[in-house]
Design a protein around this nucleic acid. Structure first.
Lengths: 354, 354
DNA sequence: ATATTTCTGATGTACGTAAATCAGAAATTT
DNA sequence: AAATTTCTGATTTACGTACATCAGAAATAT
């Protein structure tokens, strides 16, 4: 069996209370005694039983996730993952609340952050909007001793503890690389459909994509960005017009949401030959892949991001270090052939990595 | 706070003992009373605190992982993941042992399984070799009430409870699809490098690859399989000879291990133009991607597989159902641009700013 | 109505840790 | 040497559940 605090006490020849003081960094232990206890811990290979410890302290960590409202299917999936994690994590003495804010609305986000601070939560996770007032609110949270992570989209000039999301520059480069390889020698320009240049993740993806297309050579033209506000209808209109204006168009990189409109426009124009690369496995992109309208989808696993955010928030709330490598979110590539089956109706399905 | 057994007892107007009987399916409760208790459980939304429950029962699950020995870097990575999970899972009252067997050696594997049975473990995970004596040993394990999962490579005609690995047919198809797209209209045959046609996962990958290449049209020739036994030196020799015999070779699909040899042969021949698709992110494939010798790597996340195997074994040992969709392992695609950075020896990231 | 079986309540211990209290020992200061 | 401070030990309660025991109540059979 694993050694317990009792074993340490016996081995070090001290009482349980002293072991407890050493283990929990409480004062009242002479340096010599502390060293003896620590040696016993080392020699016995003692590891704290977190379950028992949590049980004993009966502490709960109230966390808040601030997520954009609206129809964006990725955000809705993200929220579903938060709620799923919330039920699971009640075992881990974490209480999770979800708060909605309008998308791309910095003042509303700042207000939501301040509300969470007032509630006295232990940690906040938020999909950041890149604006000074948001950075200021994050500063206030941190000043109040509240852990803060940005989710999906970062905000560099802020005091956030950690960013839970993918390297969007690398994501853009990946999209560019796939586009270049899939198109090969085929001539024609490439269009880019984005949500808004006001969010950092979209800007970074575009930057990475453009950089790689330039490096790839061949002088392929990348057209001006179409900003669809992540809304399917706008995306449909923009892409439809673009297909008319550029009949020779060879590829489209959709780096935001609104992909239902993108697929609709392509199908309406009968342009299944256009090479399309999009982001995030959602209902529209899944259908697009299956029907061959979309060629590849880059994905960030929302479940991973949420669970990582929870781990980081709890660690920060406890003042523990975070192992960055463990929290890195991968950029998944999906094509028709390796597309995982959709979740079942219970919504519980997901390859849990915990 | 979450409701506890005490709350249920109060709500249902019964004693703690009765609640316990209902919760744990013990006899001695009238149907009427049981219904009352169950209603209270329902109404209060009671969920058993697994941590406290495990603590109380103090049960441990001894599990054994049987893994091929040798230099195969994927297997070594798999073993590392098992050991990592072992340290973490001691919290979950699981004790994990690792046993080595020679690769592709059915009698040795059967013997290892029988040894584990004799030890009275609660569950066994093994990288299967597709042979009748192995299936028989699995049958004996199951007959002894021991949970059994196959890991990475399956063995269909056996009594194993579950297979923890990817859909290798789909993996082969994915490789085929990428190969076809990357090559485009470029002429030339495609070679296949495998470990051994005696293991099921390699056979299935080949089948999927061939099927998709046929469907893709263009009449591209797929050469006879080169069997490298997952050994780098053999692979190097086979590929080197193949490059001489087929100067027009356009692509190579490496569906097993020994990729260090593959990369060496390609570099020696100066054939960076050959489109190469390999399996598993390991040191050689990572280097191959970074240097541009390998174009894409399909990966199965060994960590996911191991954790899934542990979850399944524990569930089976407890007689609980497994949600198959939750345990599905994805086929990851990596190219140079979305390759995750390797971890350094401390487990922390090399470049983790963001 | 009595005997018997079946159900239920009350109570206690255990799991491994956290945290508090209080008494006593050791070290330090006066 | 006495007074004080600082350290340490012993002990207890608590967390939420599992599990065992025993007595008593209720239901059923005789």
């Amino acid at each position: 069996m694993r050694p317990t605090v009792h074993d340490i006490a016996a081995k070090a020849g001290v009482s349980l209370a002293t072991v407890d003081r050493v283990l929990n960094g409480r004062p009242g232990v002479r340096a010599v005694t502390r060293a003896r206890v620590e040696e016993a811990i080392e020699r016995l290979g003692y590891v704290r039983d977190v379950a028992a410890a949590n049980l004993a302290k009966g502490r709960v960590y109230p966390l808040v996730f601030i997520i954009p409202e609206g129809e964006n299917p990725f955000m809705r999936g993200l929220e579903a993952e938060v709620r799923l994690a919330a039920t699971r994590s009640s075992f881990e003495r974490t209480r999770i609340a979800v708060v909605h804010v309008p998308p791309f609305d910095a003042p509303a986000l700042a207000k939501a952050i301040d509300a969470a601070i007032a509630e006295g939560v232990a940690g906040i996770a938020a999909v950041a909007v890149d604006a000074p007032e948001v950075a200021a609110a994050i500063g206030r949270a941190r000043a109040a001793g509240i852990a803060f992570v940005t989710l999906v989209s970062d905000l560099a000039a802020s005091a956030r503890d950690h960013f839970c999301g993918v390297d969007n520059l690398a994501a853009g480069r990946t999209a560019g690389s796939l586009m270049a390889r899939f198109l090969g020698a085929r001539p024609g320009a490439v269009a880019v459909l984005a949500g808004s240049m006001l969010v950092r993740d979209h800007r970074e993806r575009l930057e990475g994509f453009r950089a790689l297309m330039a490096e790839a050579g061949g002088g392929r033209q990348v057209l001006d960005v179409l900003e669809g506000q992540d809304e399917p209808e706008r995306a449909r209109a923009l892409v439809g017009a673009c297909l008319v204006a550029h009949p020779e168009l060879a590829g489209i990189y959709s780096l935001g949401a609104g992909n239902a409109g993108l697929v609709a426009a392509l199908e309406a124009a009968g342009r299944g030959d256009v090479c399309v690369i999009a982001h995030e496995i959602t209902e529209p992109t899944r259908l697009g892949l299956e029907r061959g309208v979309i060629d590849a989808v880059l994905n960030q696993d929302a479940g991973h991001e949420v669970r990582s955010a929870i781990r980081v928030l709890r660690a920060k709330a406890d003042g523990l270090p975070v192992i960055a490598a463990q929290e890195r979110i991968r950029i998944d590539i999906f094509i028709k052939e390796n597309l995982p089956q959709p979740l079942d109706e219970t919504g519980t399905a997901r390859a849990a990595e915990a």
